[in-house]
Amino acid sequence: MSIFLHELRFYRRNTAIWTASLCAGTALLFSMFPAFAGNTQALEDVLRNYPDVVQKAFGLSPETIGTVPGFYSFIVTFLMLCGAVQAISLGISVLSKEIAGKTADFLLTRPLTRGRVLTAKLLAVLCCVAATSAVSIGATFAMAFSVKDAAFDLGPFVLMALSFFWVQLIFLALGFLIGAAAPKIRSVLPISLSTVFGLFIVGMVAAALDQKDLYYLSPFKYFDTVGILQTSAYQTSFVVTAAAVTALAVCAGYAVYGRRDIQAA
């Protein structure tokens, strides 16, 4: 219990800053909606001039960009990108900081199994991510209702908003595995950014090429907003993949960390 509280205390400022930034980003992006909604026809014409590949890569659909869910399906991608960076950074740092700061000796000679230590740490960062998701999804709803010009279908909107949390969960798990397995990470952010942007670009390329099989390689595409907008549902095979990737990363993290040698400082 004390590790859990210790970690929460350690990350509370970081989490507050991320949450506030995401809310600000959400507000900023939604504030542009009236401009889009006001000139639907002109906007559609502009977008149609973009090459098909670009439209697909960014998940732009000229027909829906003027509606609140359509607009959100476009901007949520960027919010997810930020959320993913936060989550993977937390996942990596909650383990790597003990190695980099040479405090692992202290923590791992306490009367706890390594599994207990990992669980306490994982739960703490999970709380941080859940808090960020909850608040920023709340902000999303608040903004959506304040800018809407017409009633919209809530179903796909809720699914997309929740996707933000699912994506954070996947990246938290990936970060946890990296933190458990990597030898010594002095600086977390470069690894977080390169992993997140790498996977994001894979998703963009997959979308541009219209290769649905490649979607499995990018967690950003597991909850494809264009698809949700059309069908008002998640695609089962991707939900299963997302759950499997998350579970596997966490289990592998436990397995690797449970056996790893903690080298002398």
């Binding site: 350690f10 700061g101 405090t103 000796d105 000679t109 009367p111 002398a264 400082a265």
Partner: peptide, 18 residues
């Protein structure tokens, strides 16, 4: 290890804390 650790005190040559 956890049972043993309850009754062991350890001081490394270089100490690092938070």
């Amino acid at each position: 290890a956890p049972q043993i650790a309850r009754r062991v005190g350890y001081l490394p040559s270089e100490v690092f804390y938070y």
